[in-house]
Design a protein around this nucleic acid. Structure first.
Lengths: 147, 147
DNA sequence: CCTTAGTGTAACTATTGTAGTTACAGCTGT
DNA sequence: ACAGCTGTAACTACAATAGTTACACTAAGG
């Protein structure tokens, strides 16, 4: 099963925030939803998670959302964790209650555990090594190349 | 969202096959289901996938399933791919059809792509580095330590 | 001060993937 | 031939995702 698109949507939204111009019109959930191509409520729910993680500040009433840190200080792992794609250490789900009377049954979990954690860790470390800053730089670069 | 337990069940089943004694009674889907603590049909479906991937041979009628290769020649990545936990290169799902009129919208996918592939690759390489042999060795070791 | 635009959230729906279960046809070794 | 097992279809239950409507709440600006 796939990792929820909440993660890629979150990176999208944060990129919008990172690139927003001072003089620009406010980035409301409706605007962001337009860019992502989804429903404003989906964005607001997401912003709630990002806010809880301390990545953004949301002005309640007449709108506006802002990053609380520099884009260079936000890693994709921060985002990944913020949107709770997976509980920590739970990327792989393991069948529970194997037969304890069986050699394999009573030891498989412990035998697999380290490997699964290492695998998950390897993935997360890649995300930890990329910042929002790098993503927006890449966005600008891609756009220049395409034109 | 979590990676399906099909993967850990598959490793469990393959471990049973790797450790099965010649003189032992046949490993039927019912027996394996007992050890895993699930339904025989779930096991048979799984064996179907492992068979398709060429990892096991199933004797159709009066039972019995066997590995087609040495445990040392089967990596956890082989198993992971066999049970189709995720399509190749599709661990992360990305929201589709972002707004092309928007700078971020039209470049986010390309900008994220490399990173997501690298992350997924890092995970898979860990799995590629562990063999079924190592798992069964670990199972025996764990059991000795517990007793 | 009150209007207004936007947020926060509940509630519901549709869709998808997982997992368990029953049922039964098909195969094969003895 | 038959007993025992596999292969698979069909159904159920359940959980997560994602979209949508609706509406109470909040604060900034006239």
């Amino acid at each position: 099963m796939q990792i929820s698109s909440r993660f890629s949507v979150a990176v999208h939204v944060l990129s919008l925030l990172a690139l927003q111009q001072e003089d620009d019109v406010l980035l409301t959930s409706e605007r962001m939803a337009g860019s992502v191509n989804t429903n404003p409520v989906v964005i607001r729910r997401l912003l709630g998670q990002l806010k809880k993680a301390g990545l953004v500040e949301v002005r309640p009433a007449s709108g506006g959302t802002f990053l609380t840190r520099q884009p260079a200080a936000i890693s994709l792992l921060d985002v990944y964790r913020a949107v709770e794609v997976v509980e920590e250490g739970q990327l792989f789900s393991v069948h529970d209650k194997p037969l304890q009377a069986c050699l394999v049954g009573r030891n498989i979990q412990a035998a697999l555990d380290t490997t699964l954690l290492r695998a998950q860790n390897a993935l997360e470390q890649v995300l930890a090594g990329v910042t929002l800053q790098q993503v927006t730089t890449e966005i600008l670069l891609q756009d220049k190349q395409a034109s």
